[in-house]
């Protein structure tokens, strides 16, 4: 009984303090919301950084989070199409239903790449008809998301609007400084070609001057096939490509086999905050990936 009372009190404490409860679909969004909201809000993510955000199980335990949320921030562009909709519907929370003030699609102010042109069919694989949803991997989009979050939080908690504005400006300044460092670190390797497993790196590659010359997947969402793998090997040998970028949730067997036959190297690059334990925020995500890539580019021709 005492435990139950303590739990109820703890749950009520956040509300009593007037802190908005924010739920995000990914840890990247949670990190950006935390940058703006600080301790004036609470935020938690549904997906973990080391899991494939396309395939999250809509567990009832997530409903417990969504039921109390004041704001839901999602990646959009159909990334969560396989799991978010039933969670939102079953949350019994009018505040976060599509169209409500607490439903925020973070992609709406971002630069979106790979929007397919012409006829789209499933013969193209699990293609995203609304563009590449891995857009947060360009810090410029991170800034855009943070701004939209600041506007939304300020409407939710007008009393803290000045604090949110101050925190956004601080984030903006720190991100600007970090971007200069990341760009100078990657500058010597502009134009380098890489192979990636899934089409997760379009925004990252554009921003830091890399060229993704091919994919381990023959088509988005379709597992590697022997004939396509041979094409990738031939392409890597022809263009002297040495790095294969793999997200932490994909099997390494095919990429490692390709690497063995081409003298290349497999790099487990992180598409999300929380991909490994030490990457706890949006800044550390780019620090980790850029240090890893720059270190490897320096070693391979």
């Amino acid at each position: 009984m005492r435990t139950l009372l303590a739990l109820l009190l703890a749950a009520g404490a956040a509300r009593a303090a007037g802190r908005s409860q924010v739920v995000t679909t990914t840890e990247d969004l949670a990190s950006l919301v935390r940058e703006v909201g600080g301790d004036r809000i609470t935020v938690e993510s549904i997906a973990r950084g080391y899991q494939d955000p396309h395939f999250v199980e809509p567990k009832p335990s997530f409903l417990l989070k969504l039921q109390k949320a004041d704001l839901l921030v999602l990646v959009g562009r159909d990334l969560e199409i396989g799991w978010l909709s039933p969670l939102v519907t079953q949350s019994r929370n009018a505040r976060i239903q599509p169209g409500a003030a607490g439903y925020m699609d973070a992609s709406l102010t971002c630069e979106i790449l790979d929007v397919p042109a012409g006829q789209i069919t499933r013969a193209m694989g699990d293609v995203h008809p609304l563009g590449n949803p891995h857009y947060w991997l360009d810090p410029a989009n991170g800034r855009r998301i943070a701004r939209a979050v600041e506007q939304r939080l300020s409407r939710l908690q007008p009393g803290d609007a000045a604090e949110f504005g101050r925190r956004l400006a601080d984030f903006d300044r720190r991100l600007g400084e970090a971007e200069k460092q990341w760009e100078s670190r990657m500058a010597p390797y502009r134009g380098r070609k890489v192979i990636s497993y899934h089409r997760s790196w379009s925004n990252f590659a554009k921003r830091f001057g890399l060229e993704v010359a091919g994919y381990v997947e023959p088509k988005p969402g379709i597992p590697p096939t022997p004939s396509h793998t041979l094409d990738v090997i031939r392409g890597m040998k022809r263009d002297n490509i040495k790095l294969i970028l793999v997200e932490p949730y994909f099997d390494l067997r095919t990429p490692e086999s390709i690497a063995r036959q081409t003298g290349g190297q497999v790099v487990v690059l992180l598409p999300s905050v929380g991909g490994v334990k030490e990457v706890k925020d949006y800044f550390q995500l780019f620090d980790y990936n850029i240090n890893l890539l720059a270190g490897l580019f320096a070693k391979v021709p």
Binding site: L108, T109, C110, E111, I112, G131, R144
Partner: peptide, 9 residues
């Protein structure tokens, strides 16, 4: 383009 490349940042 249809996508919000219209963002003038």
């Amino acid at each position: 383009p249809a996508a919000p490349a219209a963002v003038t940042v």
